[in-house]
């Protein structure tokens, strides 16, 4: 990991493009490749003889910087600007009129005070925690189970694995709508099945009771998130050498011991990446909730993301909506810090 802790979680998503850009910048000639590698300390000094002439070296620095320009511009325009604008907006009294005449007076911390003082804030925060933790736990556990299952090769395993990717390929609007039908209280298949199996006596009001709605959106979100977890964890599993398992088996390790002492520790780097990316995706989940429950009933599934949307686009308090959005970003950043710290400690420990 070449990340510095100051960068936010969203940068992580773009990290790929940044890395690609630096690789591109490194490509054109050997000298710059050498220097690029040098920076990460992979090559001994003295290999970069062509750098001796100061004029050439200056030109090469310029050229290298030139290759950075597209990535930097991209980040500045599509990431930096919106983020900065959102922060600024959260300190403004931004109304519909502001769009037209551009005037939005600064109002200090009034938006944050309004949001934090709102009766909904604690509910929304708690809902977001429950939704994120429950979604991540089940997505990961089921994803890992499936990944372990598919490591044993059996007929049609490739086909099955491909089919399991389906939830990932479907637009969220489609899967959300299907879940709305499935979980309908009166005519949904889920209740029909549970009733016929005798597991319940009365239809469960999945989407229309404050006690069940959160479970319903978590179920839908878990289903959507399983393929992502499975694919990445499966990739991690295939990189563990089979010989290790053979050796462990020869030493008499059982299935559980092999998992506990081989798979689990060796999979840890992948696990932390999966959980971190999953957290970033889940904490900002929006569409699945909007389709299933519209953040209802009675705010039972109101998350920070849906509340931010509602404040901005239903109530037209754009400043308050921006403030909630920023709270969301800060929370995600905190988790990114924890993650980066853990990674660093792990690397230092090696």
């Amino acid at each position: 990991m070449t990340m510095t802790p100051r960068r936010g979680p969203v940068v992580r998503i773009f990290a790929g493009s940044r890395r690609l850009a630096s690789r591109l910048a490194a490509l054109p000639n050997r000298a710059s490749t050498a220097k690029y590698k040098l920076r990460s300390g992979a090559l001994p000094a003295g290999r970069h003889a062509p750098l001796a002439d100061p004029r050439t070296s200056k030109r090469q620095t310029l050229a290298r910087l030139g290759f950075y320009v597209p990535a930097v511009l991209y980040l500045a325009v599509f990431f930096g600007y919106p983020l900065a604008a959102n922060v600024v907006m959260s300190f403004q009294d931004y109304t519909v009129t502001s769009f037209y005449d551009g005037g939005a007076p600064f109002n200090g911390l009034a938006n944050y005070a309004a949001v934090l003082g709102d009766e909904l804030f604690s509910t929304t925060l708690w809902n977001t925690v429950v939704f994120t933790v429950a979604s991540l736990a089940f997505q990961f556990a089921i994803g890992l189970g499936l990944a372990l299952f598919f490591r044993r090769h059996f007929p049609l395993s490739g086909v099955l694995r491909a089919l399991l990717l389906l939830p990932w390929l479907l637009p969220l609007l489609v899967s959300g709508t299907v879940f709305r039908w499935l979980l309908d209280q009166d005519y949904g298949v889920v209740n029909h099945l549970l009733l016929n199996l005798g597991l319940i006596d009365d239809p469960v009001p999945w989407l229309v009771s404050p006690d069940h709605a959160m479970a319903a959106v978590v179920i839908a979100n878990v289903w959507i998130g399983i393929p992502f977890n499975m694919v990445i964890l499966y990739g991690g599993l295939t990189s563990i050498s089979p010989q290790l398992y053979e050796a462990a088996a020869l030493d008499g390790a059982g299935a559980w011991q092999r998992f506990r002492h081989l798979t689990w520790p060796l999979l840890r780097p992948v696990t932390s990446v999966v959980l971190m990316l999953g957290l970033v995706y889940t904490i900002k989940a929006f569409d699945v909730v909007m389709v299933l429950t519209q953040a209802g009933p009675a705010d039972a599934t109101q998350l920070l993301s849906t509340w931010s949307y509602q404040l901005s686009f239903t109530q037209l308090h754009f400043g308050q909506g921006a403030a909630v959005g920023n709270v969301l970003i800060v929370i995600a950043m905190l988790f990114a810090l924890v993650y980066l710290r853990a990674v660093r400690r792990e690397q230092a420990g090696r």
């Binding site: 000639n29 050439t56 030109r59 050229a63 030139g66 320009v69 597209p70």
Partner: peptide, 14 residues
């Protein structure tokens, strides 16, 4: 860096 590569770099940036 060969001259033509540099030109490509410049062109890309511009």
């Amino acid at each position: 860096m060969p001259a033509h590569r540099r030109r490509i770099a410049l062109a890309a940036a511009t």
